[in-house]
């Protein structure tokens, strides 16, 4: 339990279950939550991308050893899949992406957040209307203070916490999703590791 437990709402309460809280908080920030095993991961992702009608999908390097299998699965499903870092130099390629799939450095159960690092690209998680993030179970941390401690040692040039889709309520307080970043944010909690997928 972190030192801010019971004091900060961004920490787990004593005895609280991390996965349950993660799911609840993702719901609260209008993100979707699903669980998967390495075996079913590719199928789950294809299903989710089909549902939103994604045709051009960027996959980021932080998917590591799992990326190759995902690219193959997407292509098999007739979805164009590209490596984000290969597409990123071209503004047109960035514009064309209608979904991105990333891994993450860590996730924060208490706030329903995922944290991406530079391997996901600074803009990788928010350039497209749909973002799907794969969270390996061991990367799910309890609360914000623990997460910041863990990533403090990472030496990353950029880390981004994101909690749900992009939103604005600037016009008469009406909540609209997808202002600049994704309209839809999906999180898949992976019971296992990406390189097993």
């Amino acid at each position: 339990m972190t030192r801010l437990s019971g004091v900060s709402p961004a920490e787990l309460r004593p005895g609280e279950d991390a996965i349950e809280r993660f799911e609840r908080e993702l719901g609260a920030v209008q993100a979707t939550f699903a669980r998967s095993t390495p075996e079913t991961l590719a199928r789950r992702i294809v299903e989710a991308l089909r549902e939103v009608g994604a045709r051009h999908v960027g996959l980021t390097a932080d998917l590591g050893g799992g990326r190759r299998a995902l690219v193959e699965a997407l292509r098999a499903a007739d979805i164009e899949a590209v490596h984000y870092e290969a597409a990123a130099p071209s503004r047109d390629a960035l514009r064309a992406m209608d979904a991105t799939v990333t891994g993450c450095v860590a996730a924060v159960a208490a706030t329903g957040s995922i944290i991406t690092g530079e391997r996901a690209g600074r803009a990788g998680a928010l350039i497209a209307p749909t973002h799907l993030c794969v969270v390996e179970r061991e990367r799910l941390l309890d609360g914000l203070s623990q997460a910041l401690r863990v990533i403090a040692g990472s030496g990353s040039s950029m880390l981004a916490l994101q909690s749900g889709p992009s939103r604005t309520a600037d016009i008469e307080k009406t909540l609209i999703m997808g202002m600049h970043g994704p309209k839809a944010a999906h999180v898949v909690l992976l019971d296992g590791r990406l390189d097993e997928a």
Binding site: S8, P9, A10, E25, V29, T60, A61, Y84, E85, A88, A110, T111, G112, S113, E118, R119, G121, R122, A123, G124, L126, L144, I151, S156, S157, M158, L159, A160, L161, Q162, S163, G164, P165, S166, R167, G181
Partner: peptide, 30 residues
């Protein structure tokens, strides 16, 4: 959480960027 909570009533804003420098060698963007 103090800033996000007091500002908008959220635990955290949807995006929190922590930027520690420009793009480095081998990074895809920035």
């Amino acid at each position: 959480p103090l800033l996000a909570g007091s500002g908008t009533g959220q635990l955290l804003t949807s995006y929190v960027s922590m930027i520690s420098g420009p793009r480095r060698e081998g990074e895809p963007d920035g």
